[in-house]
C-alpha cells in the first residue's frame, strides 16, 4: 500500500522537511494527553472501587457516661457491625489518631481533657452495596447519635472532576489527531500541486492513480513514523519525571498513579499509529484529488 521508491521528488518539498518536526510536536502533546488519560482513568477506577468500599462510623462521646459507658457503646456498635452482611473488616481508630484529626479544631489536647468521639473504619464488600443510611438507622436504634459517613459526596465529586479532566484529555487527544491529519492532507495537496507536471507525465505514461498515491503514502508513512519517534523520545523523559513527582505526592492521599504496562505499550504504539494514519490520509487525499484530473 505504501511505496518506498519514488518517481516524484517529494523529499525536496520544503514542507516535507518540516513535517516530521510538526508531527513530533503533536505526538509529544498526544503522549502527554494520552498518559494523562490513562493515569486519570486509573485514579478514578481505584477510588471508585477502593475508597467507595469504606465507611466511617462515628459514636459521639456521652458526656454523662464515663469511659466505661463509652467503651460499652463502642463494643455494642462493633457487635452489630460484625453481624451486618457486607462488612468485611472493622477497625477502631486509635485515640491518638482521633486527637490528631481533631487538633485543627481543638489545638493540642490531652485525651483526658475532653470527651472524645470514637471512630470506626469499616471496610465493606464492594459486591454488596451496603447503604450508609440504612446502616445508620440500624445502629441508631440501639446507640444514640451514631453517624455513618460513606464519603459519598466528596468522593462522587472527586470522581466527577477526574472524569471531566479525562474527557478533556480525550478531547485534546482527538484535536491533536485532527490537526495531524489536517497537516498531512495539506502537505499532500501542496505536493500534488507542486508536482502536478510530473504527475501528469506519470499519468500519460500509463500510471494508475494508486501508483502515484503509493508514493505519497510511502513518504507520509515515513515522515509520520519519524516524527512519531522523535515525539516519543521527547515525551518519555517528561513522563518519567511526572511519574516521579506523582509518586512523591502519593505519600499523601493519592492512590498509586504510576502508568500500567498497557499504558506504556499504547505510548510505544503511538508513532506506528501516527505513521499509519499519515500514510492512509495521504493515500486517500491523493486518490480523491486525482479523480478530478483527466
Amino acid at each position: 500500500m505504501f511505496s518506498r521508491r519514488t518517481d516524484l521528488p517529494l523529499d525536496q518539498d520544503p514542507l516535507s522537511r518540516f513535517l516530521p518536526w510538526l508531527i513530533a510536536f503533536m505526538v509529544y502533546l498526544a503522549a502527554m494527553a494520552q498518559s494523562g488519560l490513562i493515569g486519570l482513568d486509573e485514579l478514578a477506577r481505584r477510588w471508585d472501587t477502593g475508597m467507595a468500599a469504606t465507611l466511617t462510623v462515628q459514636i459521639p462521646a456521652d458526656p454523662d457516661g464515663g469511659k466505661a459507658a463509652n467503651d460499652r457503646r463502642l463494643q455494642k456498635t462493633m457487635n452489630i457491625l460484625a453481624q451486618t452482611p457486607g462488612v468485611l473488616h472493622t477497625e477502631v481508630v486509635s485515640e491518638s489518631k482521633v486527637l490528631e484529626l481533631l487538633s485543627p479544631w481543638l489545638g493540642v489536647v490531652q485525651a483526658t481533657d475532653v470527651p472524645l468521639p470514637r471512630l470506626i473504619d469499616v471496610e465493606t464488600d464492594p459486591e454488596i452495596e451496603l447503604d450508609a443510611r440504612v446502616l445508620q438507622q440500624k445502629l441508631a436504634s440501639t446507640i444514640k447519635g451514631v453517624q455513618v459517613d460513606d464519603h459519598g459526596i466528596w468522593l462522587a465529586r472527586l470522581i466527577q472532576m477526574v472524569r471531566t479532566l479525562e474527557a478533556f484529555a480525550a478531547a485534546v487527544l482527538g484535536l491533536i489527531l485532527l490537526a495531524a491529519t489536517g497537516t498531512v492532507v495539506f502537505t499532500t495537496r501542496t505536493g500534488l500541486t507542486v508536482h502536478a507536471e510530473a504527475i501528469e507525465v506519470l499519468h500519460l505514461t500509463g500510471a494508475q492513480d494508486s501508483y502515484i498515491a503509493k508514493q505519497f503514502a510511502g513518504r507520509a508513512w515515513g515522515m509520520g513514523l519519524k516524527g512519531g519517534l522523535i515525539g516519543l523520545v521527547l515525551a518519555v523523559p517528561t513522563l518519567v519525571l511526572l511519574g516521579y513527582v506523582a509518586d512523591r505526592l502519593q505519600a499523601g492521599m493519592l492512590p498509586d498513579m504510576s502508568m500500567p504496562l498497557a499504558g506504556w505499550l499504547s505510548l510505544i504504539a503511538l508513532p506506528l499509529a501516527v505513521g499509519l494514519v499519515a500514510g492512509l490520509t495521504a493515500r486517500i487525499t491523493v486518490m480523491r484529488n486525482l479523480k478530478r484530473m483527466i
Binding site: D7, L8, P9, Q12, E197, A198, V201, L202, T205, G206, A207, Q208, Y211
Partner: peptide, 19 residues
C-alpha cells in the same frame, strides 16, 4: 517533459515501472 530529478535511466524506465 523529462523529469528533472530522475536520472536518464529512471526517466526511460518510467513506462516500465508504472506497468
Amino acid at each position: 517533459r523529462l523529469l528533472d530529478h530522475l536520472s536518464t535511466f529512471d526517466n526511460v524506465a518510467l513506462p516500465l515501472r508504472v506497468a
